[in-house]
Design a protein around this nucleic acid. Structure first.
Lengths: 328, 328
DNA sequence: AATGTTTCCGCAAACCTTTGCGGAGATAAA
DNA sequence: TTTATCTCCGCAAAGGTTTGCGGAAACATT
């Protein structure tokens, strides 16, 4: 572990540590000649400031935390990818932890974030999170938290999320425009606020158009496949399916393929999605875009605003847009 | 930033800092009574040790670095997810950076890792990486590097990767067993060693079986879709397709669907894959599994071995296995 | 020649924790 | 009573950096 330190440079050159430190960051107090000498030696010695010492001294970690249920997820990937990009551009490092939707792990993770004195945190609460007090501890320590995607109900929090109601009603609108009247709606865990919002908006629109709606709730793609398959083989008349997420869409597409149905001619399909899954099929599945990438940019901006002392607590929304495929 | 420190606890209780420090980690020198008092106060004050101070003092960061071309990738996700799991279990935090296959960004990232004095690093070199000297700087500082998936040619390095040759010949074997004779092989960038290995093994086996082979190289799923579509519509006789990666498989499946072909009856298909993409379709695509998850576990074990002082530089291989679908 | 300004640099404290060493008091052994 | 052994705790240094303040030398101004 022969890392070069300021001290080493200072000693070999006969300057003080403070002079070296200042020279390295082009402080005007240091003469050009001295600076050059110091920079040169630092360079040949591959000097890198010890981040721990810097952070300890400056009380600023330049590390941002990110917590998601699972990295391995069509939506979060693009969010993460987008955040990482912004972090690097702005000189932050990114620390990522997964909760696996387990509140115990979630609490552990928050502790790790606190220990590492992250500058800020992006958090997607696990579906089963009951209390926010562990998050509160962070904000008590002036560590801003920006919740994204799956966010708590409470008001006085920073949140960025998709326009859930809007996305669901856009989908409903598209189904109506395509003259679909007998519809299966595939939704996720009824306890999640995201499910509730999307379901409410979807039902609301559909009722106003007098469509016949069959709602099912599935926790994963396998469940969705099973449930939809059963319905398709029952006496129920179905002319279209709506999926509230990519995960569920995968199951539904499996069911569609297994039953030998052709999209559009045999059955209509629309989903709320990040875009990756719908494009795997031909014809492409028509979807309402919820861009993790855009959400990431927005979340980062919000966190930066918090860090620069903006007191405003915000709830920001990324608008959704209909992407035409060939499935409706 | 009212973080509680050892000093605060010590002062309010009238003990010295060292006593508090020891009590908190159950050092036998401290009496039970004292320890209890200290633990209690620490608890109500939500004391968390300042990771920077700890790391600075102990010279051990407990942070592990991970660098990939892109997080948003079917293979790397599962690798990352697996690594994150192990890290958390072992008390390490994980710092993730993307290279976007840009050597300049790659160098920047390595600098960030050095500054943060990561305990170890998992690295997947970008396709265009020319020199390893930036990596060398890390190993010079006793930071072990484990290369994974796309690894340098050099010998004296820690590497974990898939059994590339074996995977390709397994696929070839399966094609032969299914009596396929006119085959399109879809491969990636011919400059990547992973492509070369897989191609060589595949061609080698096929030649021995006198199969008619048409090889194409594509850089992404769109290219693959285009190229395969053209071939399918040409006069070429084709009874099966082989894809060396998930990315390419997506394109090929698009072409298959667009041309209205049925897997197995119209055309055979086999891929080397992580498993996620093949399972999206029905029938499921038969594939040779290259598990990012397993690779992650292996890589982690190897890094731990390095950290515990094992001098052995290793090249480890994850064996591949055929997963039967319905596409052959 | 005396005073005021710059220019350039070093001192030392602070950030928070860990840990070797030593020491005071209490208990046990002789 | 003296000596040896424990028990429990504090001192102080170290890890690498940043930064307010002060000071010596050089220069410019009267």
């Amino acid at each position: 572990m022969n890392n070069t330190t300021l001290k080493q440079i200072a000693n070999t050159l006969g300057y003080s540590i403070s002079t070296v430190s200042r020279a390295l960051k082009h402080h005007p107090d240091i003469s050009v000649k001295t600076r050059e000498k110091i920079l040169e030696l630092a360079n040949t010695l591959d000097y890198e400031p010890n981040a721990f010492a810097v952070h300890l001294r400056t009380q600023n970690s330049k590390v941002i935390g990110l917590m998601v249920p699972a990295i391995f997820n069509y939506f979060y990937e693009s969010f993460i990818s987008s955040i990482e990009e912004e972090c690097r551009k702005n000189g932050y490092a990114l620390m990522i932890l997964q909760t696996a939707n387990d509140p115990a792990i979630e609490a552990d993770n928050l502790k790790i974030f606190r220990q590492n004195r992250v500058t800020g945190l992006f958090a997607c609460i696990s579906a089963k999170t009951k209390t926010l007090e562990d998050y509160q501890k962070l904000t008590d320590q002036n560590i801003p938290v920006v919740f994204f995607d799956i966010v708590p109900e409470e008001n006085a929090l920073n949140k960025v999320c998709m326009a859930d109601e809007k996305a669901a009603s856009l989908a409903a609108e598209a189904l109506h425009a395509a003259n679909k009247k007998n519809i299966i709606g595939v939704f996720g865990d009824p306890l999640m606020s995201i499910t509730q919002k999307r379901l409410a908006a979807f039902e609301n629109y559909m009722q106003s158009k007098k469509a016949k709606l069959t709602i099912i709730h599935s926790n994963n793609s396998n469940d969705a496949e099973q449930a939809v398959s059963e319905l398709l083989n029952s006496s129920l008349k179905v002319d279209a399916i709506f999926c509230m997420s990519d995960e569920l869409l995968i199951g539904v597409m499996k069911a569609v393929q297994i039953n030998g149905l052709k999209l559009k001619s045999d059955i209509g399909l629309i989903a709320i999605s990040n875009g990756f899954v719908p494009k795997l099929y031909y014809p492409q599945v028509t979807y309402i875009e919820t861009s993790g990438h855009k959400l990431g940019k927005l979340a980062f901006t919000q966190l930066m605003a918090c860090l620069s002392g903006s007191p405003a607590v915000n709830e920001l929304i990324v608008e959704s847009v209909l992407i035409q495929g060939g499935s409706l």
